[in-house]
């Protein structure tokens, strides 16, 4: 392939940014869900509607 370094840099950059954004979002979701669940539990034991259950 011609200009391989430029091509690889482009693909690597795009995939790297996508990876960082996805992992960041997943971790944030996990942390917030745990935090909310513990707060809700401390607050009254019965979680309100539409609460922290469900899958990622």
């Amino acid at each position: 392939m011609t200009h391989l370094p430029y091509i690889l840099a482009s693909y690597g950059l795009a995939l790297g940014v996508a990876l960082v954004l996805s992992i960041g979002a997943a971790l944030r979701l996990r942390r917030d869900r745990a935090r909310l669940a513990s707060l809700e539990a401390a607050r009254g034991g019965t979680p309100r509607r539409g609460q922290a259950g469900g899958s990622a």
Binding site: M1, I7, S10
Partner: peptide, 9 residues
Amino acid sequence: GDSVRIMYV
């Protein structure tokens, strides 16, 4: 040439 592949990102 192959540089066109940068288009796909």
